[in-house]
Simulated assay, not measured.
Amino acid sequence: MQQTRLDTARIRAARTVIDPVFLDTPLYRCEALEPVLGCTVSIKLETANPVRSFKGRGTELVASGLAAAGERAAVCASAGNLGQALAWSARGRGLDVTVVASRFATAAKLDRIRALGARLELVDGDHELARERAAAIARRDGIRLVEDSLDVETCEGAATIGLELAARAGSFDTVLIALGGGAMATGIGHVLKELAPGVEVVCVQPLGAPALTRSFHQRRVVTTESADTIADGVAGRYPIPAVLDDLLLVADDAVLVQERSIITALRLLLDHAGLVAEPSAALGLAAVLEAPERFAGRHVVTIICGSNVDMPAYRRWVTPAPTS
Rank of each mutant, 00 (worst) to 15 (best):
M1E: 09
Q2W: 09
Q3H: 13
T4W: 02
R5N: 07
D7W: 01
D7C: 12
D7L: 01
D7K: 06
T8H: 01
T8E: 07
R10T: 00
I11G: 02
I11T: 01
V17R: 10
P20M: 09
V21W: 04
L23A: 01
P26N: 03
Y28F: 14
C30Y: 00
A32F: 02
E34P: 03
C39F: 10
T40W: 05
I43S: 04
E46D: 09
T47L: 11
G56N: 06
R57E: 01
G58W: 04
T59G: 04
T59N: 13
S64K: 09
G65Q: 08
E71Q: 15
R72D: 07
A73S: 14
V75K: 05
V75S: 02
A77D: 00
S78G: 06
A85S: 14
A87M: 07
S89N: 05
A90V: 11
V97P: 00
T98L: 09
A101S: 15
S102F: 09
T106F: 14
L110H: 08
D111G: 13
D111N: 14
R112W: 11
I113D: 05
I113A: 11
A118W: 04
L120I: 07
D124F: 06
L129V: 13
E132L: 14
A134C: 09
A138Q: 08
R140Y: 07
V146T: 07
D148A: 15
L150A: 15
L150P: 02
E153A: 14
T154P: 01
E156R: 03
G157F: 08
G162F: 05
L163S: 05
L163E: 02
L165M: 03
A169E: 04
T174A: 04
V175S: 05
L176M: 07
A178F: 02
G180Q: 00
G181N: 06
A183K: 01
A185S: 12
A185G: 01
I188H: 00
G189P: 00
G189N: 01
L192E: 06
E200C: 12
V202P: 03
P206K: 05
A209Y: 02
P210S: 11
P210I: 12
R214K: 13
R214H: 14
F216I: 11
H217R: 15
V221S: 11
V222S: 08
T223E: 13
T224E: 11
T224C: 09
T224K: 03
E225K: 13
A227N: 00
T229S: 13
I230W: 06
G236P: 01
G236A: 14
R237A: 13
Y238V: 15
I240E: 10
I240G: 09
A242Q: 15
L244A: 11
D245A: 15
D245E: 15
E259Y: 12
R260K: 13
I262G: 08
I262W: 06
I263T: 08
A265M: 06
R267W: 02
R267F: 02
H272E: 12
A273T: 05
L275S: 09
E278M: 10
P279H: 10
S280C: 12
S280V: 11
A282V: 11
L283G: 05
A286T: 07
A287I: 10
R294D: 04
R294Y: 05
R294T: 15
A296P: 01
G297H: 04
G297A: 03
D310T: 13
M311S: 12
T323C: 13
